[in-house]
Design a protein around this nucleic acid. Structure first.
Length: 547
DNA sequence: CGACGGGACGC
DNA sequence: CGACGGGACGC
């Protein structure tokens, strides 16, 4: 226990221990008067018993015929449940009822789907894994009822994770404990019902309940924008006057301000035309005026809700790459200095992420909404004839077009010219040829910038920083390309950050579940960092996928 | 048949 | 100094 790094004051040791590992505690109804020793004798053969607790009435001390037994491992508890449920202890005539105990927080409510929680695993898989691969892999641990690999709806490409459903809880537990650590197995939460999903969608978007009409309209937001912008051939001035649809969607968006004006600090060099097109992606824009000398801009929207929405979606947006916009309500603008360089902008944006999410909305819910807006934005840009890549590279005249001639080009975020972007390659699990270790000093660079820079040498599989750290890795499918990346980028500056780019040492071997039951626990989730690049952005590949 | 103690020094 | 990420299902 002492080695666990994931204890914190709020959770306390008790609530964590009870569910750790998950589904390792049994709730048992039994004949009153059964002693702890009798339980121990009957259950110890299933594994290591960490705790036996016989419930007694607080006042009368009368035995209530309820006992909790905590095992050290999920599989031990599952085996005990399987074998002991319905069986009477020696010398008693009442069959036990043995089920997995609810967490203390969930209380005593019986969930009709509780079996669902015991037999289904959520797993991370290589992108090239088919459902058959997944099934074969997890059939090692027991009888698989079915598997699912999640795929992009448009491209059909695997999203890199899936579900495995077993017939029996014990088999799911064996897989949970013994599969390779890279699968990062978790017991899957039961699928939410339709009503529950609606609740969350609405709460993620607005601060209170809305009528059914608005709910439906919001759901439509994720579809091609034809519905919201019926004749959106070009999102020029006045497009917001089309109907009332877009405004209705934002009518309940939470605001803290009564103003409808935004103050924007844009990077020097951004033009009036591009900035206003960007802000016009949010419904309700009335004007967006930029002083191209200072980079200071003001925008007004038709309502405080629209303005707040624009602020939330565009604050921190890197436009161009590596240069986040800073967007605030105009009547709140005096409270804070604007960042005058990328470094400050980066950290201030990171600090502001707490307020990025609407109160009560989880980061995941907000991300969902951002993705929808991103999709919208990408589609509108496409229809407007704007090549998002030109925008991202800050090439106002579309001068990027030259492909394949190897000529270097000036990029907004980098101190030296770089080769033109090249396509990345899919991770097929076998094509890794060279890994690079990357350090960004002093703080970090968004993933968008990293991708844009590191893809330019060809055969890039992936590049990322570790969550909340200033170091990370790039993976190439070609050693030559990786070496070119080192040669070009090591010692250079990306978005104001000094880069070290080195050959990576071989990775540590993957940990495995089971055995000593290590610390793989759920604590990572609580460190969920939202990097600036998870905001609204326009990636070419995505755009193609979604069109 | 049906739901939450005792222990304790790891900050 | 700077060494190994994150991921949730249109029922």
């Amino acid at each position: 226990m002492a080695g666990r790094d994931n204890r914190d004051g709020r959770d306390g040791r008790e609530s964590r221990g009870l569910d750790d590992p998950p589904n390792s505690r049994l709730f048992i109804l039994c004949q009153k008067g059964t002693t702890e020793q009798e339980f121990r004798d009957a259950f110890e053969k299933f594994g290591v018993i960490e705790d036996i607790w016989i419930i007694k009435d607080k006042r009368t001390n009368e035995d209530r015929g309820i006992v909790y037994i905590k095992f050290s491992k999920t599989s031990e508890a599952m085996q005990a449940m399987e074998e002991m449920n319905g069986r009477a202890l020696p010398g008693t005539n009442k069959g036990l009822k043995v089920v997995v105990a609810n967490s203390k927080r969930d209380g005593s409510t019986r969930d009709p789907r509780e079996d669902e929680r015991l037999v289904r695993l959520f797993v991370i898989i290589p992108k090239h894994f088919t459902e058959q691969n997944l099934r074969d892999e997890f059939a090692k641990y027991g009888d698989v009822e079915n598997v699912t690999v999640l795929k992009d709806r448009n491209s059909g490409e695997s999203k890199g994770f899936g579900y495995v459903r077993y017939f029996k809880p014990l088999h799911a537990a064996m897989a949970y404990e013994n599969c390779e650590g890279s699968y990062k197995p978790k017991f899957a939460e039961p699928q939410r019902s339709r009503d529950e999903r609606d609740e969350i969608e609405i709460h993620g978007f607005s601060s209170h309940h809305s009528g059914a009409g608005q709910k439906r309209m919001y759901e439509d937001e994720i579809h091609p924008p034809g519905y919201l912008y019926p004749d959106i051939g070009f999102p020029g001035p006045g497009y917001h006057h089309i109907g009332t649809g877009p405004m209705d969607i934002l009518a309940d968006y939470p605001t803290t301000s009564s103003g409808s004006r935004l103050i924007i600090q844009a990077p020097i060099g951004l033009t009036q035309g591009y900035l206003s097109k960007l802000f016009n992606l949010i419904p309700g824009m009335e004007y967006c005026d930029l002083n191209e000398t200072t980079g200071l801009a003001y925008a007004r929207y038709s309502s405080p809700q629209c303005a707040a929405y624009a602020r939330d979606k565009l604050n921190g947006f890197e436009y161009p790459l590596g240069s986040p916009l800073h967007v605030q309500m105009a009547d709140e603008s005096m409270r804070q200095e604007f960042p005058m360089n990328v470094d400050k902008g980066f950290s201030q944006f990171a600090n502001s992420l707490g307020s990025y999410n609407a109160p009560g909305a989880s980061p995941v819910e907000s991300l969902d909404i951002r993705q929808k807006v991103k999709l919208q934005a990408a589609m509108i840009l496409e229809k407007a004839g704007i090549n998002p890549h030109n925008l991202l590279n800050f090439a106002s005249g579309g001068a990027v077009g030259s492909v394949g001639d190897g000529r270097k080009e000036r990029v907004s975020y980098c101190n030296i010219p770089l080769p033109p972007p090249q396509p990345t390659v899919a991770d097929d699990g076998k094509n890794l040829a060279q890994r690079l270790f990357i350090v960004c000093q002093p703080s970090g660079v968004s993933e968008r910038v990293l991708k844009d820079a590191f893809c330019r040498f060809g055969n890039l599989i992936d590049v990322y920083l570790l969550s909340g750290r200033n170091y990370g890795y790039a993976k190439y499918a070609s050693k030559d390309c990786a070496m070119k990346a080192i040669e070009t980028l090591h010692g250079q500056t990306l978005a104001g950050q000094k880069m070290k780019v080195l050959e990576a040492e071989p990775p540590k071997p993957h940990p495995v579940h089971g055995g000593l039951q290590g610390d793989e626990g759920p604590s990572k989730k609580q460190r969920l960092h939202i990097l600036p690049d998870t905001g609204l952005h326009l990636e070419e590949t995505k755009i193609k996928d979604e069109l």
